[in-house]
């Protein structure tokens, strides 16, 4: 992964910052160039909520290239409190204990290392909600 490519996604991946339509308020995650609801191309910055509920998940045993050291790990789809749905990893929990419908919260974690000399990639993952 090139450094600029990693760097320009930091607002989304590390801070859950995205955009919403200035005309109709529809939240776009990931950001879009044109609102799928009303057709406007005017957007304003928007911070996604950090808590949500797990919609579905999988335990990855046969990983894609670059993730060879990581399995088993959990990839999940989370519905945030504002209704926005996002894909990330579920962390800080044994894979066998992950359940559909469980409450989760955002947490900053390492995703993967780019070999011995590349960048170490970080992002928001979700862990079981700690009250």
């Amino acid at each position: 992964m090139s450094v600029p490519r990693y760097w320009r996604e930091i607002p989304r991946r590390s801070r859950l910052e995205t955009v919403r339509c200035s005309e109709c308020g529809t939240v776009a995650y990931p950001p879009r160039g044109r609102c799928g609801k009303c057709g406007s191309n005017k957007f304003e910055n928007y911070k996604l909520p950090e808590k949500g509920e797990l919609v579905t998940f999988t335990i990855v045993r046969n990983p894609p290239k670059g993730f060879e050291k990581m399995p088993p790990y959990v990839v999940g789809i989370v519905k945030l409190e504002d209704g926005t749905i996002i894909t990330s990893q579920i962390t800080d929990v044994e894979p066998e204990d992950v359940k559909i419908g469980m409450k989760v919260e955002a947490v900053f974690r390492k995703v993967v290392e780019d070999g011995d000399s590349g960048i170490i990639q970080y992002a928001i993952k979700f862990r079981p909600l700690i009250k």
């Binding site: 990931p30 579905t56 990855v60 990839v75």
Partner: peptide, 29 residues
Amino acid sequence: LSLGKAADAEYELFYGSSFVSLNAMIMRH
């Protein structure tokens, strides 16, 4: 890796998901 590129590289594959794992989530759902 090449087959995985059918998915969104920045917002799906980045998190270690693959073509199989995306469909596994659909199946569990």
